[in-house]
Amino acid sequence: MAYKMRIYVDGGCRGNGRSSAIGAAAAAFKNRWGKHRGWIRILPSSPRPTNQRAEITAIILALEKALEKFEQLDHNPYLDVRIYSDSKYAVRCMKKWIYKWTDNGWVNSRGYPVANRDLLEEASELDSRLREEGRVKFIWIPREKNEIADRLCNEALDR
């Protein structure tokens, strides 16, 4: 029997692209009764926060928390992890681009170094570890279906 984890993630950045930018990431686990438990992470000021860095950080946070949860279980079930994001960029990174970039030596289709490589490599390593225990799917959802993670992220940015 599979142990299901449903995780909603969101990242945000205020002042995107400016030196005064602040960023945050959030991950919210949804349990079988529909309740949520959330975590947040404030992005460091260097490298400069961006929306894309925040979205990938949210995925990293979700993967870390999923691995922590798995390690706390008193049995060793097959995992069925689904990570929901309203960022097409983050989902595409994790579903297909990351594999191409790894094969290309972290050079994008235009011949430039891949942006956010540091975070993407971390996400890839965590994803690989979690896949050793089961299945991991990254699913794009519309922003209005990501209310909990969006709220957590905005609350973190408001602090």
Rank of each mutant, 00 (worst) to 15 (best):
R82W: 11
L73R: 12
S20V: 10
E144W: 12
P77T: 03
T50P: 00
D103I: 13
N76Y: 13
K30C: 10
R129V: 09
A2L: 11
R14S: 10
K30I: 12
E55S: 04
E71P: 01
E147T: 15
I7W: 01
A149P: 07
K4I: 13
G23K: 00
Y84M: 06
G111F: 02
I98H: 13
V107T: 05
V91H: 09
I42M: 02
D10V: 04
V81Y: 06
P77H: 11
R6A: 04
Y89R: 06
A123G: 12
C93H: 06
D158W: 09
K96P: 03
R129F: 08
I83S: 03
S20L: 08
L152A: 03
W106S: 01
R48P: 03
G23L: 00
W101C: 01
A123H: 06
P113W: 11
G134E: 07
I141H: 04
V107I: 14
D103T: 14
A123W: 02
P44T: 08
A54Q: 03
W39T: 00
N31M: 04
K100S: 12
I40W: 01
A26H: 04
R92Q: 15
L43N: 00
T50L: 03
V9T: 15
R92C: 12
A66L: 09
E122P: 02
P113E: 12
K4Y: 11
V136N: 05
K145R: 15
K69P: 01
T50H: 05
L73G: 06
W97N: 03
L120T: 03
N154Y: 07
K4Q: 14
K95D: 11
E133G: 03
D118R: 09
S46C: 09
Q52L: 02
L130K: 03
A28D: 07
R32L: 14
M94L: 15
A66F: 02
E64P: 01
E71C: 06
E125P: 02
E122T: 15
R143K: 15
G34L: 11
A28L: 10
I22L: 06
N31L: 05
A115L: 15
V114K: 06
P113V: 13
M94F: 08
G17D: 08
A62E: 04
E133C: 13
K69C: 10
I40C: 10
I7E: 03
W101A: 02
A27S: 11
V81S: 07
S87L: 05
T102D: 14
R14N: 11
H75S: 09
N154R: 08
A115F: 13
H75Q: 09
T57H: 05
T102R: 15
I139F: 09
S85G: 06
G17L: 04
W101G: 01
K96W: 05
A90V: 07
T102E: 15
E155N: 12
R32P: 04
N51C: 07
A156V: 00
I40F: 06
W140T: 07
A58I: 02
I98S: 13
V91Q: 04
L43M: 02
A28S: 12
L63V: 09
L120Y: 10
A24V: 00
F29V: 13
A149M: 08
Q52M: 04
M94N: 10
I42H: 01
N31R: 04
S85K: 03
W39M: 00
V107E: 05
G38N: 09
K145L: 15
K137P: 01
